[in-house]
């Protein structure tokens, strides 16, 4: 076979939108013979239940990354939302304990809290001109601390059944959590690829100066992105809280690097202007698949950690290679 053709095929594969998906499938096929349990219904359900909340957070992060920013506060938003929601609707000590609207009010309160924190991040980045990294780092520390302080580090139990249903139940055959994550992903995809706001988000991430001169309301677009990221983290918080049946201030604290890692593996660039919701779906599936299968292989936590680090590096290298191929 002609090596030239062969190489072009590789190049085409790497620059394809779906290459992370192919990579996931390849991984699955390679690992499956060693751990047949990987494909069991139970395990797939397990993968999904880990993946869906992570996916929702990662989609919000994707929007922020496309504007050229970063949001480190998502994990704190998850904790804070969880605590706020639980303290509204817990039948033990909640504000609306026993009220039939408690679940709805709780969810609304959670989302509002997330959007509010995101909005504050946006203000810090646009109006106060703070670097996104450190602005959201500070808000991660503050709101994480706030969640712990509000509850004095005690989890809140006794959430209403209707709320728990949201995370654990199913509508006909479709699990609610899958529906929530799916709707979020589709919504984000349409927003980014089809709407005016989406076009503006890419423009701002590609070049804020040009965008401003061309009449794009740069500050508002960026603020929206952070608010959306906060909102997504709050939705994820609903899923996590309902799954655990507990409002906990430390919920989701360990997923921050997974979120950023998954988004970057998907192909969204930290430099801004590049990325999309679909890539993030693939990136999240990939990282969850790796996580799960390494666990199933009986590999210890340290190997999993190291492999994750290696994957992020690999993704960064592939991203550089992709830009080179596309440029050349």
């Amino acid at each position: 076979m002609n090596p030239q053709v062969e190489m072009n095929r590789w190049k085409r594969l790497v620059v394809s939108d779906y290459w992370v998906l192919y990579l996931s499938i390849a991984c699955f096929l390679v690992l499956f013979p060693f751990t047949p349990r990987l494909a069991s219904i139970e395990n797939i359900r397990n993968i999904f239940s880990n993946m869906l909340p992570l996916l929702v957070v990662a989609i919000g992060e994707t929007i922020v990354l496309i504007t050229g920013g970063i949001d480190l506060s998502v994990t704190s938003v998850i904790g804070l939302s969880s605590v706020i929601g639980a303290s509204i609707m817990s039948s033990d000590q909640g504000l609306l304990a026993g009220n039939p609207a408690a679940a709805a009010a709780g969810v609304a309160g959670m989302i509002l809290a997330g959007v509010f924190v995101g909005w504050l991040n946006g203000i810090a980045v646009t109006r106060l001109r703070m670097p996104p990294f450190i602005a959201t780092l500070t808000s991660m520390m503050f709101f994480g601390g706030l969640a712990v302080w509000l509850t004095q580090s005690r989890p809140i139990y006794d959430l209403p059944a209707r709320f728990i249903e949201l995370g654990q139940g199913a509508w006909l055959w479709l699990p609610n959590s899958l529906a929530v994550a799916g709707v979020t992903a589709v919504f984000a995809h349409v927003l980014l690829s089809r709407s005016l706001l989406g076009r503006w988000i890419y423009a701002v991430g590609t070049n804020p100066r040009t965008s401003l001169i061309s009449g794009v309301p740069v500050n508002r677009v960026v603020t929206f992105a952070y608010a959306a990221s906060g909102g997504c983290a709050a939705v994820a918080s609903v899923l996590y809280t309902a799954r655990l049946e507990t409002g906990s201030p430390v919920l989701g604290q360990r997923i921050l690097l997974d979120v950023i890692g998954a988004t970057v593996i998907g192909g969204t660039s930290l430099f801004g202007g590049k990325g999309n919701a679909l890539w993030t779906v693939f990136g999240v599936s990939f990282i969850c698949l790796i996580d799960n299968s390494l666990n199933m292989l009986g590999l210890s936590y340290f190997v999993v950690t190291m492999v994750k680090g290696g994957i992020i590096l690999f993704a960064a290298l592939v991203d550089a290679a992709r830009s080179r191929i596309l440029a050349g």
Binding site: L257, T305, K308, G309, G310, A316
Partner: peptide
């Protein structure tokens, strides 16, 4: 940022 993020995982794994 990305390089040291990856390193964060790898050194912790080590």
């Amino acid at each position: 940022f990305i390089a040291t993020l990856a390193a964060l995982y790898m050194w912790r794994g080590l």
